[in-house]
């Protein structure tokens, strides 16, 4: 038996005549057009969109993910361990990380020396947040305030990412580093 896999529209004669429905559709769009046009002509704004950056919206959705935050440990160090997962998963190749070895902190021997996000490339997909194994990068409700005429100016560095809205990580508390990492007998 043949199975219909799509939702076959049940169209009556009126719909199948098409022309009247077309006219109805045109009336709808036309009325919207005229309404908005009237607003424009009477100097009320006829659009929901804004002139960015002259106008900024204030009612962003709480789900809006506009800017990145690098979270900090309790001691103020960056939580990122420079594993490059975010940079690897980033579909826009917008993240670049320079790592450094820090044996003074044996629990976190690898740390970022530089952490750069290219906001001219970022597509705000949030993959970096999902890929992060340490909850070190987050996106928060904000707009990336980086309009500019120079692509090179649209890089956000580690200082900015950590400090524009400092965040501690409430979910994950690291144990204080066990100082000597010699073998612990059972």
């Amino acid at each position: 038996m043949r199975k219909d896999y799509w939702n076959k529209p049940e169209m009556g004669l009126w719909e199948r005549l098409y022309i009247f429905e077309v006219i109805r559709g045109l009336c709808i769009t036309g009325s919207v057009f005229l309404g908005n046009m009237w607003k424009w002509l009477t100097f009320r704004k006829g659009a929901l969109t804004a002139y960015y950056p002259e106008e900024l919206r204030s009612d962003y959705s709480p789900n809006n993910r506009g800017r990145h935050v690098l979270t900090q440990r309790d001691n103020g160090q960056v939580q990122c361990v420079s594993c490059n997962m975010c940079a690897t998963v980033c579909p826009a190749y917008a993240i670049e990380i320079l790592s450094t070895a820090n044996f003074a902190d044996p629990c976190h021997p690898k740390a970022p020396e530089r952490f750069e996000i290219d906001y001219s490339r970022c597509i705000f997909c949030g993959f970096c947040v999902e890929a992060c194994p340490e909850d070190a990068i987050r996106m928060v409700k904000e707009v990336p305030d980086f309009p500019g005429f120079d692509r090179d100016r649209m890089w956000a560095g580690m200082d900015l990412l950590m400090n524009w809205r400092p965040m501690r990580d409430p979910a994950k508390h690291y144990p204080t580093p066990q100082a000597p990492l010699r073998e612990v007998p059972e």
Partner: peptide
Amino acid sequence: GEPEPISIEPKSRKPKF
């Protein structure tokens, strides 16, 4: 391998670096 470890023991510590 298996996706989830069945062991719940803490990992043993040995000299690092």
